[in-house]
Structures are given as structure tokens and as C-alpha cells.
């Protein structure tokens, strides 16, 4: 591979555009896992939520012949799935991680079940005339060279996700509700003792988690691609869970890690063009997260040990 060629393809506006395109579903997955996790209610069904939402976006937009109603149906699906975690873990006493595992396996097969019912095809929804969401050209900005090429012309959901990112940041860091969410996650007994309704706070977090996860799922089938195919999320939800697990309660680390991951993924796509062993290159992002989490855990352990000594 020619190094100059490689840099030539990386250092372009279209490459940055691609990073954003790749990043949107990953940001959704990370935010989904983060908002639930920070309230002490782990949502590891992100993959399943995104998968079901991706399917319902296609089916919903086909039934209603409206992309927006399709998006709405997808979001409702995501919220319902997230609430299942609340129902089974809070009311019925199941471990939320186990509920998540069950929901993921359920979504894998149930999405195919529904796909088959409505298309008589178990592989793809290509036969359905589903809608996709429009792209947005931001006036004035789109005419600015370089910057305009990068931030204008994305799908509507991309801008919604940026908005959601800001809203979630403000919610967690700047509002009383955010404080309560964090309190419920840190120590639910202590939170209860100062009058926080832990269950309600967690249900709110799960609703946000389901909503943002569904947004990511819908993005895949209403923008990134325009059809649903079997297992279309292909691990993005799991990546979000990994990133959120690494970031802990820190929002900035969450976003930085997700963006690093997206860059890795985009670079991986370029590497693939150069006939390198694609299987190994595909693992680079996972190795990166693994190394990240190892470093993170080692420093945490050192800190704790030091704290014990002091």
C-alpha cells in the first residue's frame, strides 16, 4: 500500500463526512447504553432495540407511507422494549443483564419472524417500498468551503442525534433530574433516603435509552441504507455497551471514545480497499476498545490501591 495514497484518501472532506455517517448509529448506541447505565439500570439490549427499531422503521414507513410516522413507530418500539427491562427487573425482580440477553436473542429471531410475515422473505425487506428520511442542506453553511461539505447534507436523524447529544448532556449535568439519575446509579439506598424516587428516575432513563437506541436503528434503515436485512445492526449496539462500560459516568469520555471508534471504523473501510487481510483489520476497533478498557481498569485499580494506602 502506498502511504501517500492512504493519506490522500484520509485527509479529505469526504472522509470526515464518512466518519460522521459511520458515527451516528454508534453515538446512538453509546448514548442508549450510557443513559440507562448511569441510572444504575444496565441496558444491554441496545443491539436488540436497534434491530427491532430498524425493522419497524421500514415496516412503519411502508404501512403509513410516511417516513416521519415510520420513525415514530420505530421510536415507540424502542421505548416499549426498554420498558420491558423496567417491567421485568423492577416489578418482577429479574436481573436487568439477564433480561437484556433474553431481549437480544428475542429480537434477532423475532425481527426475522416479522420480516417473513410481511414480505415472505427471511433475508431482506427489498420488496417493500419503504421510505427514507430526507437529507438536509443547511442554508449559508453549505456554501462555506470545507466546513459546508462536512456538516451539511446529512440525513435528518444525524442532526436529531446531535441535538439529542446536547440535550442528554444538559439533562445529566445541568438539571436536578440529572442529579437524581446519577444519584440512583451511584447508591440507590442513599438516593432513596434523600427522597429520590429511584424507580421513576430509572424508568425515565430507560425511556430515553430506548428512544435514542431506536433513533440509531431507524438511521440504519432510513438513511445509512434503505432496506432492512437480517442482522443489520451487526454489533453496533454491543460496541455502544462496550464504550459506555469504559466511559463509566463521564459524558465527555463517552463521546470521545465513540468518535475514536468511528474513526477507526472509517479507516478500516479504507484499509479494506488496499487488499489487506480484512478479517484482521475488522478486529482493530474491538482491539482498541479492549486495550482502552484494560488501561482504564489498571489505572482505576492503582487509584483505589493508592487511596487505600493513604
Amino acid at each position: 500500500m502506498n502511504l501517500a495514497d492512504f493519506f490522500a484518501s484520509v485527509l479529505t472532506t469526504s472522509f470526515v463526512f464518512v466518519i460522521i455517517r459511520v458515527a451516528v448509529p454508534l453515538v446512538c448506541a453509546s448514548l442508549s447504553a450510557y443513559t440507562a447505565g448511569i441510572s444504575g439500570m444496565n441496558n444491554i439490549a441496545v443491539e436488540g432495540i436497534m434491530l427491532m427499531a430498524a425493522l419497524m422503521a421500514v415496516l412503519g414507513s411502508y404501512w403509513t407511507q410516511s417516513a416521519w410516522l415510520g420513525l415514530l413507530i420505530a421510536i415507540l418500539t424502542g421505548i416499549v422494549m426498554a420498558l420491558m427491562i423496567a417491567l421485568f427487573s423492577m416489578r418482577l425482580g429479574a436481573n436487568p443483564i439477564l433480561v437484556g440477553i433474553a431481549l437480544n436473542t428475542f429480537a434477532t429471531s423475532f425481527s426475522i419472524f416479522l420480516l417473513y410475515l410481511f414480505t415472505k422473505n427471511k433475508g431482506s425487506s427489498a420488496s417493500l417500498a419503504s421510505k427514507i428520511l430526507p437529507t438536509v442542506d443547511i442554508p449559508i453553511i453549505k456554501d462555506i468551503p470545507f466546513i459546508g461539505d462536512i456538516i451539511s447534507g446529512h440525513y435528518v436523524i444525524t442532526y436529531l442525534v446531535v441535538l439529542a447529544m446536547i440535550v442528554i448532556y444538559l439533562l445529566i449535568y445541568k438539571t436536578p433530574l440529572g442529579l437524581r439519575i446519577k444519584a440512583a446509579g451511584l447508591d440507590q439506598e442513599a438516593a432513596r433516603s434523600v427522597g429520590v424516587n429511584v424507580n421513576r428516575v430509572r424508568i425515565i432513563s430507560l425511556i430515553i435509552s430506548g428512544l435514542i437506541g431506536a433513533l440509531g436503528g431507524a438511521y440504519i434503515t432510513m438513511g445509512y441504507m434503505s432496506v432492512f436485512v437480517k442482522n443489520i445492526i451487526s454489533g453496533r449496539g454491543w460496541i455502544g455497551i462496550a464504550v459506555a462500560g469504559m466511559a463509566g459516568s463521564s459524558f465527555p469520555i463517552l463521546i470521545i471514545t465513540t468518535m475514536l471508534f468511528s474513526i477507526f471504523q472509517a479507516v478500516t473501510n479504507i484499509f479494506l480497499l488496499y487488499n489487506l487481510p480484512s478479517e484482521l483489520i475488522n478486529t482493530i476497533p474491538y482491539v482498541a476498545v479492549l486495550v482502552g478498557i484494560i488501561i482504564f481498569s489498571i489505572t482505576e485499580t492503582r487509584k483505589r490501591k493508592k487511596g487505600e494506602l493513604d
Binding site: I44, I241, A242, V287, V289, S297
Partner: peptide
């Protein structure tokens, strides 16, 4: 040793083993 989140580590290893195995 380091109390690393086993769920996350195992999920990452799953994807790594998949790539390595196919390679």
C-alpha cells in the same frame, strides 16, 4: 486482577476471535 468489566471484555473478545478465526 483489575476488576475489568467482564461483559465488555468478553464481547470484544468474541468479535476479535471471529476475525482471528476467519483469518
Amino acid at each position: 486482577k483489575f476488576n475489568a468489566n467482564e461483559l465488555v471484555v468478553s464481547l470484544m473478545l468474541n468479535s476479535i476471535y471471529l476475525g482471528l478465526g476467519l483469518f
